[in-house]
Design a protein around this nucleic acid. Sequence first.
DNA 1: CTCTTTATTGGCAATTTAACCAACTGATTT
DNA 2: AAATCAGTTGGTTAAATTGCCAATAAAGAG
Lengths: 108, 108
Amino acid sequence: MPQLHRYIPERSTTRAHFEERSAVLKALAHPSRLMIVDELSHGERCVCDLTELVGHDISTVSKHLNVLKKNGIVVDDKRGKQVYYRLKVPCILNFFHCIESVIDENRK
Amino acid sequence: MPQLHRYIPERSTTRAHFEERSAVLKALAHPSRLMIVDELSHGERCVCDLTELVGHDISTVSKHLNVLKKNGIVVDDKRGKQVYYRLKVPCILNFFHCIESVIDENRK
DNA sequence: CTCTTTATTGGCAATTTAACCAACTGATTT
DNA sequence: AAATCAGTTGGTTAAATTGCCAATAAAGAG
């Protein structure tokens, strides 16, 4: 008698699953997008605020925001002429501590 | 009397700093490299073990390992004919929980 | 309604990334 | 010493990324 349910792993470790994870990391892995996430950790901001912060063309910033949005890191909210973005999953911020420690180690 | 020391920020938020951080994230943001990091969380492994795991050419895996090494995520150790890699900064593993929660949110 | 402001989208050029194969290095085996 | 095994490095090609400009859309102001 086959026991099919025994073969379902608790945690997926398939290639597809690692691709999903890396997509999220890739969305964060750009200096401008990190600046944006850092800024959004202080509250929601409109695209024009973020454009000034990042110092690139507004179309470039809009595309960066779309990358973050597609990967579930931010959500947007149009109010009037402006579009406001905010963090969707705050735990993203925990990354920074670890990344700092990696960088500190690299300096040694 | 100028108070120069007052202008030194506690935490750097310059573009250069965000570039450093994104370099670390970028090193992690690839499915094969995530597979490697996940495997190394169980202990050190030689390149040939990781090559079998990843399922790509050994030269490709070697280059992935070099990316992780250059960014301070793993360290290597040659013993005999084999080169063993292990995680340098274990906190990297904390990322996974958060990434999972992002992915879970994305499914909703 | 027209003009302006805010943001998104399409398209293009330059750069980067990632895979493979081939060549090479270094250590072990025979 | 010669052959073999484990890994790294160089070179090439295909694909993805990122920036800007131009065109478009949507909302508000005059």
